[in-house]
Design a protein around this nucleic acid. Structure first.
Lengths: 349, 349
DNA sequence: TTGTATGCGTTATCAG
DNA sequence: CTGATAACGCATACAA
């Protein structure tokens, strides 16, 4: 029976290399050499040690290794909310790359609150993370920026770009929105509304720049009344659809930019007894199940969020390996694609 | 000589309590007392220490604390894939509870592979996690079960129940499916198909038992040809809809049990040129955006996955605190609710 | 009230 | 080739 206290057979947590050494009749140094496959251990001895390890079910304490190596082989990933499928995808992509290289990915939700972002960054510092991936709420937040630089740890911004420099990965929203807008303009639309959030982030900047450039190429400019740029929340999409379609001169097309926005936008539309593409054309970003399965299916600006996670992880590991300056800038862009479906109609009047 | 290739002053990672002590002109013990608010430190000294801490931007190395306390204040959560919104919700719920109590939640995806499950459990053991939440693919896997018990660490099964005992939390799928089935039977349906996966798990067992009991209450029994119980994948839902609706005597209602299944089921239906509720009635589980936004919206068995995460975290912390036997059984159930929408019609023939 | 010394579980550097 | 031992950064019993 496994009844012994402390260092009994299978008592897991409390077994140390010392115990293994004792059981194998060797020194603790030899045990260490065996598990780290340091060359030059006599096979017979190694076998004895391995046997003791198996019998005791021991595995080296990673906290102790962390303390010595001053590397935890852990990477932190902070974003607003894991329930946002975009972050779930990014997490999966990053995890793929990191676990293959022996790193542990630790995610944490900040609920978009700067105070929590600060607390989490500090937490990762205390835990001696080797680096972090960050999607902060506001790129300009002074305290967050200060915390990031004081953490003196390699970092990659995800869909964000900090004024203090450093690496940034994101989708090529500029081209995504240019394509979408050009497409709508090509269909004859002239009053195009934009619903999105993330003001003051790389994403929003790129999107708005693209939108303006697209219009400018035809000698047009955005109509401020059609720009609804305050939130990514579903309810926001719902409300703004009412506002937009209640206007004297309503838009003929809507760009819904942000995954959580779409359900709100679509139900807002329905609630008004309107439908797409008849009453208004609709393009969304990113692509989702809902966009695919809606009837009619919705044209979308698509990008591979998992690839974004992979890119961020790779960039981070590169920097960790290279020892390059933390703030040395690097901007990585992932291609987007306009998936044409049945949610836009040509204007003939 | 372990020469100190000192990174110099402000190099975050390399600062220790020793440096703080030196700067404050006190001993390392005092520094420790200050940050742990051990009573009996002279305010003036404490202030000096705090000043040094702030100036150096030091924070205690959690790995070192872990090694001493033999507690990492870290909890692992293993499931198949974070992209499944159910797991994202559970993660959020668990994170809420755990972070409030000073624990770090670390999630990891196993892709449903037993080998990865084993590797991850061992990883958490090596990292000296204080406990883990597990959603394994097969409850009966001998190696996984052995790894769990050898980890000798408190654990909670999520939507699973291990033969080796221990705690288990899950939704009350029994009542959920009983309500759904009774509802369909009440509408006059007699040929009801079930599409789901997770064979040999608590979830599937409860669901099938409920389905059988519901039928049995009317002197009926399940028709094996209508039971499609092999996968939670979207593609599976798509294919099985073809199979089912291509039958000589097709079902008049379908239970689509599993979040990822629904998109496949709905597009399978459309692909055949059929629609609900006219050609077939439809009930899904769990509730999702898609179920809400589909037209018509789809009746769903709903449960609060975030609450499930919270329950698991609380149960785990309780057990960690109490030091009760790891395998001492405890079964926790979360209520479900049948949300009636427009995807089922009454049979009148 | 504060300082000192020891131990936590490893790894790496020495001798032997 | 192997054993002993000094770090790693912190907490704490024990001294002062």
């Amino acid at each position: 029976m496994a009844g012994k206290k402390g260092q009994g057979g299978i008592a897991g947590g409390r077994i140390t290399a010392q115990d293994v050494a004792a059981r194998a009749g060797v020194s603790i140094g030899t045990v260490s050499r065996v598990i780290n496959s340091v060359p030059g251990v006599k096979p017979a001895i190694a076998a004895k040690v391995q046997k003791a390890i198996d019998e005791l079910g021991w595995s080296p304490n990673l906290a102790a290794q962390t303390i010595r190596a001053s590397s935890s082989r852990m990477i932190g990933f902070i974003f607003s909310d894991i329930r946002n499928p975009l972050y779930a995808m990014m997490t999966k992509g990053a995890e793929e790359v990191l676990s293959a290289r022996g790193y542990l990915l630790v995610t944490a939700s900040s609920d978009g609150q700067a105070a929590k972002e600060v607390a989490l960054i500090n937490l990762f510092k205390r835990r001696r993370a080797d680096g972090m991936i960050l999607t902060v709420e506001r790129e300009g937040d002074a305290e967050v920026n200060q915390t990031v630089s004081r953490a003196s740890m390699p970092y990659v911004m995800m869909e964000r770009e900090l004024p203090i420099g450093g690496m940034s990965v994101g989708a090529d929203h500029y081209n995504g929105i240019r394509q979408a807008t050009d497409y709508l303009l090509g269909l004859g639309h002239r009053r195009i509304a934009v619903i999105t959030g993330g003001r003051g982030t790389r994403v929003a900047r790129d999107r708005m720049r693209a939108f303006q450039d697209s219009l400018a190429a035809r000698g047009m400019a955005p109509d401020d009344d059609l720009m609804k740029l305050d939130s990514f929340a579903s309810e926001y999409g719902y409300r703004q659809m009412s506002v937009l379609l209640g206007m004297r001169d309503p838009p003929t097309a809507v760009l819904s930019l942000g995954v959580r926005l779409l359900p709100g936008v679509v139900s807002g539309l329905r609630n008004l007894g309107k439908s797409y593409p008849d009453d208004v054309s609709l393009i969304c970003s990113n692509d989702t199940d809902l966009a695919t399965m809606a009837s009619p299916p919705i044209t979308a600006v698509r990008y591979d969020a998992m690839a974004l996670g992979r890119l961020a992880a790779e960039a981070l590991l590169d920097r960790i390996g290279s020892g390059e300056a933390l703030t040395s800038p690097l901007r990585i862009e992932l291609a987007t694609e306009l998936v044409l479906r049945g949610s836009c109609r040509a204007l003939t009047d």
